[in-house]
Structure formats: C-alpha cells, structure tokens
Design a protein around this nucleic acid. Structure first.
Length: 594
DNA sequence: GGGGGATCCGAAC
DNA sequence: TTCCAGTTCGGATCCCCC
C-alpha cells in the first residue's frame, strides 16, 4: 500500500484546513481492480495540485459548474412534481417493472473474459525484467494501462504520465505496441472460439461468450468452464485473465471484475440470487453508468445502489426519457442481454491528433492533409464510402467543437475529404487549436451496395417497421441506435401490451424471499454467503451491518412543493414548457455556457 | 408535425 | 523537464425544410 508521506490519511485527518482537492473529482479516484487500499485522498490531492491552474483544469471546472447547474435544475423539477404526477409515474414505473420482470430469461449462461492489465502484461511477457516493478504502458502525456504494482500508487489508465510519475516516481514507462497486443489478442480469441464460435470481442482484451451449449454438452457448470477456459488462455499466451459467469452479459461483465486479477465469479441462474447480488451493487459498477450519470443519480435522487434504482423508479420515469428510465429499472432488476448480439455495421470512422496548442494555419492544413489520407486509407481497407464528414476541433482551452456537412454523393478519396474538411475548418479560423479530427459517417458499402449482413437490422427496427418480410436494404437513417443497452428491453416490448398488471405483487413477494436466500456464490469457495457492496468494495453481508434485503416498493418519495423550474438557456432552442405527463430529457437541465 | 442533418454530451476501453 | 489520448457509438436536442 502506498503510504502518504506528507499529510496523514483521510481517516485520521481531523483538522479543518481547507482541502480543495476533495471536490476535484476525476476518474482517477474511482476504484478500479487492483486499487483497493490506495490512499485516495493523497491521489486526489496530487492530481489536483498538478492540474491546478492549467487550461485543462479550467475546463474541468467549467464542466463541473455545468453539471452542478444541471443537477440543480433537476432538483427544481423534482420539487415541482405534484403528488398526482408522482402517483401517475409510479403506476407507469410499476407497470414497466412488472413487464420487464416477466420477460427475464434465465436459460443462458454467459461468460465475460477480461485479460488482466492486458497491455502491461504483454509487455512484461516480452521483457521479464519488468516483473514486480511498477510499470505503465504509454507516455508522459497519457497512460494506456498500468500494472498492478503501479495501481497500488493510484496510477491507472487514462492518467497523464507526468501525474503518474509524481504518484510513483519509480514508475517505468513502456511505449505502446499495438502489433504485439493484437498478436496476443488473436491467441486468446482462438481459445474463446473453442467455447463459443460466435463469441463477441468487446475490445482487444475483453470478450463475451455464450457457454450454454458447451455447459450442456460436456455436463459442466459455468464455473468449471470458466476455470478451464482461463487455463487454456494461460497455456496459449502465458497471460492471466479474469472471468464472470452469469445469466446475461451485463451481469457477467460485473462479475468478471469481482475477483480480478486471475480470478472468477459465478452468479447462478436464479432470480433470488440475482436480486440479492444486484441489490447492494453500486450503480457505477454497471456498464453504461459513468461518472456523470452516477453523479446525477446520487445527487438528485440519492441513488447509490441498483436497488435504489427500483425504489426510486417513479422519479426516474418522471425525470428521464422513457428509454433511460427503462434502462435504469432493468438494471435494478438485474436484466441484461441474453441473446447473441446482432452483428453491427460500422456507423462511423474517425481519426484525430493532439498537438501543442497553436494558431498556425499552415500547420492545421498539414494536419488535415495527414488526417484525410489516414481516413481515406482506412475507408478503403473496409470498402466504405461516406457521405457525412465531421470536423472535430479542440481549442487551446479544451473546448470541443464539431462541424459537420452531409454531401450529395459518397466520397472516399483523400482529395475529396481534404477539400471538404478544409472548407469546414476555414469557417472556424482564426482559432487556437490543440486537436484536429475527422470523422466520416453515413456509409454506403461499395461491395454490392447492401449491408453485408441482413441480421444487422435490430429487432427494434423490425418491430418498429411493422413489416416482417421486408428484404430491402436497411435504411441506416431509420434504424434506432439505442439497441446497445436496450435490445433486450425492446424485445420485451413485444410482449408487454396488456394493461392489467398485478405483477408488482409478484416482485414484492419474490424480493422478500431474498431474506432467506443466498445471493451469489464464488466459484472458488462455493460459499453461500451473500455478497455486499460498500463504498465500492465487496464484503460479506455480515460485515456490512446493513439491511439491504428490503426491496419493498412501499418507500415512495413524497412530492415536494412546487417551485420554478429554470429551463436551459443556451445556444440551443429552449424546450417547450413542461406539461403534465411529459418527461424532461436530461439535456433540458443543461444551462449551456459557451 | 415529422424527418433528417448538425451538434453536443456521455460512455467504454 | 515533461503538462491531460484516440476511437467508436448511442442518446438527445435544435433547427431547417417539406
């Protein structure tokens, strides 16, 4: 454990000296595997002190103020809700929760594999002298990943190297070598293929496998398959990985993080076990809930765990869009994707480069030439032509701007890209920039003019179209982009057409059953003790000292007195006034400042 | 009023 | 000393045009 040599640790600090770093929340202070026991306050202080006064810091402050305003607006809106509105939203929420719960599929066994500190592990493999030493892959400006020795100092991915270096002066930097990582990634994928030929690679070091079939055929449990697969990955690569086994992908992903590194966790295909597991799970553990969403849910609704998402469901339906609210409650129910995900077609392709801030237009033009050539080459590799070109700029003050144009015809050549990109850039001059990027979207594949895989059409599109036999090329513009999180929910919409719902009772009964049931079991220990999450760390139920089992829906938020809702005023048009029954989309709470 | 383009934000790795 | 990435995708709103 890294010891703080200057100030004492947060637990023993009792003086009232100002500690401004406490409110400087960066992603670096969020717990990540291997970072248990890190002196969070020390990390926060160092990051704060090294960032203070920089343009980056000023931009972070702007973003923070923006988020605070948004939270304030949401609170105001919450206060304006009438009791009648709330009970209406409660009915909507309860109905939806009951519908979602009836569509739960416990028939599949999903496995999520995650290589341990992948880039760092590969580098150590090719240079064993790095073993046991704190090491990061990346440069002084940015780190891609850090090994577990470095994480003990608070060093982690996406942290600038100079800050990491301050946190851990002995830190060894190794430049990134994607060729190497791709080679090892391919080796792991060969192993995955043996267990599920249709596995989904989420990145170079992560994959989802449906192991239902292999479990059945070989009469093995999910945990046994995971053990074997991890051994085979190790044999093939010399690298360790962690695995999570669960009835759906969302839960499998959460599970793979529990016993990292070189461990695994199995969540049984049992409703009670799932509800118990999910109930005390911090919302930030869920893929799709990041820093901002976590902040909003905590500050506005006092939602910290997935159980809270169910208990505050009426408020979520009142203040978020239906799709967001549905996502939140489905998380509260422990639902996730169980069908093999559709093969997705590429939506966009981009590249961008950061450099020292400058106003040099000749330099900008040179960058545009390079980016155009790179983009053109990448598009050629995949046989794509694009119609919409987006120029991305980051100013010296870290403000991000995008400027897009949709052309009459599809283009690919670097000459064409450059011509249009230059036009877009010209309109922004003069400007001091630190990044330029180009993105192409709205593709037309040039192989045969159709999408390569007709199954790319999402179920939602299918349902929405109301046509079951349409064989024409999918119109990408009409496809709903939200199937990533909601595909399973969308599936469920098909069977959620009846209006008479007493199903809530079912949930309450089942949840109260939790009182006497075990939640989850670790494959290593086969322990039947319930797992609790406290302050981002897991512990046994007995350790928590909290009663987490009450999933009752009785705790309803009381409506508060009406108050003025300040609407966003900014570049964009103001939203229409709030009317009864209308949800407020999240961005409506923004008060945009240029 | 709806569709689609433009823009921005959030998230993940 | 160094001084905060790159890529991709989805959600949502605004705005213009038909």
């Amino acid at each position: 454990m890294a010891k703080s040599e200057q100030s004492s640790s947060s637990s023993s600090m009792v003086d009232s000296a100002p500690r401004p770093w406490e409110s400087y929340n960066t992603v670096y202070t969020n717990a990540k595997a291997g970072m248990e026991g890190v002196d969070k306050e020390k990390v926060q202080r160092i990051v704060y002190e090294m960032s203070k006064g920089s343009k980056y810091f000023e931009n972070e402050e702007r973003k923070e103020a923006y988020m605070k305003q948004k939270i304030e607006n949401m609170r105001n809106h919450l206060a304006n809700l009438k009791a009648t509105d709330l009970s209406q939203y409660q009915r909507v929420a309860d109905k939806r929760i009951a519908e979602l719960d009836t569509t739960r599929d416990l028939s599949r066994i999903w496995l999520h594999v995650d290589m341990d500190a992948f880039y760092a592990a590969v580098e150590t493999l090719s240079n064993p002298s790095l073993k046991g030493k704190p090491m990061a892959v990346g440069s002084m400006s940015m780190i891609s990943t850090a090994n577990y020795e470095a994480r003990k100092f608070g060093v982690r991915a996406a942290m600038p190297g100079f800050i990491a270096s301050k946190l851990c002066p002995e830190l060894i930097f190794v430049p990134t070598d994607f060729k190497k990582y791709t080679y090892y990634s391919d080796l792991t994928r060969k192993v995955y293929h043996e267990y599920d030929p249709n596995f989904t690679a989420a990145s170079l070091d992560e994959a989802y496998l449906d192991i239902t079939k292999v479990c059945k055929e070989r009469d093995l449990s999910g945990g046994e398959v995971a053990v074997e697969l991890r051994e085979n990955v190790y044999k093939a690569t010399g690298l360790t990985c962690s695995a999570g086994v669960a009835p759906n992908r969302l839960l499998a992903k959460v599970c793979s993080d529990i016993n990292k590194p070189n461990g695994q966790f199995v969540l049984p295909n049992d409703r009670v076990a799932i509800m118990t597991f999910i109930s005390s799970l911090p919302i930030r553990k869920i893929g799709g809930i990041g820093k901002v969403t976590e902040h909003i849910l905590k500050d506005v609704f006092e939602i910290k765990t997935c159980e809270d998402l169910l208990q505050k469901s009426s408020l979520l339906f009142a203040l978020f869009s239906p799709s967001s609210a549905e996502f939140f409650v489905s998380v509260g129910l422990g639902l996730g994707g169980t069908e093999a995900p559709n093969v997705r077609s590429r939506k966009s392709m981009s590249n961008e480069r950061t450099f020292s801030a400058t106003k040099d237009e000749a330099f900008f033009n040179q960058k545009l030439v390079e980016l155009s050539e790179m983009l053109s080459a990448d598009m050629e590799k995949e046989g794509l032509h694009g119609k919409t070109l987006t120029l991305k700029l980051k100013t010296a003050s870290f403000e991000v701007r995008t400027r897009a144009m949709t052309l009459q015809s599809y283009i690919r050549s670097s000459k064409d890209i450059l011509k249009h990109a230059s036009k877009l850039l010209k309109a922004e001059l003069p400007v001091s920039l630190r990044l330029i990027g180009l993105r192409m979207s709205h593709f037309n594949e040039d192989k045969d003019g159709s999408l390569s895989d007709p199954t790319q059409r999402t179920l939602l599109n299918f349902i929405k179209s109301g046509e079951s036999n349409k064989e024409t090329v999918v119109d990408e513009e009409n496809s709903d982009p939200c199937f990533e999180h909601f595909s399973e929910i969308d599936d469920q919409k098909i069977c959620s057409l009846n209006d008479d719902h007493e199903n809530l009772q079912v949930i309450e009964t089942c949840c109260s059953d939790n009182n006497n049931e075990t939640g989850a079991s670790s494959s290593s220990s086969s322990s039947s003790s319930s797992l609790m999450w406290l302050d981002d760390y897991k512990c046994l139920e007995e350790e928590s000292g909290q009663n987490y089992k009450n999933l009752s829906f009785k705790h309803r938020m009381m409506s508060r007195k009406d108050g003025g809702v300040e609407k966003g005023k900014g570049k964009k048009k103001q939203k229409h006034s709030v009317t009864n029954g209308d949800h407020i989309p999240i961005d409506a709470f923004f008060t945009k400042r240029s």
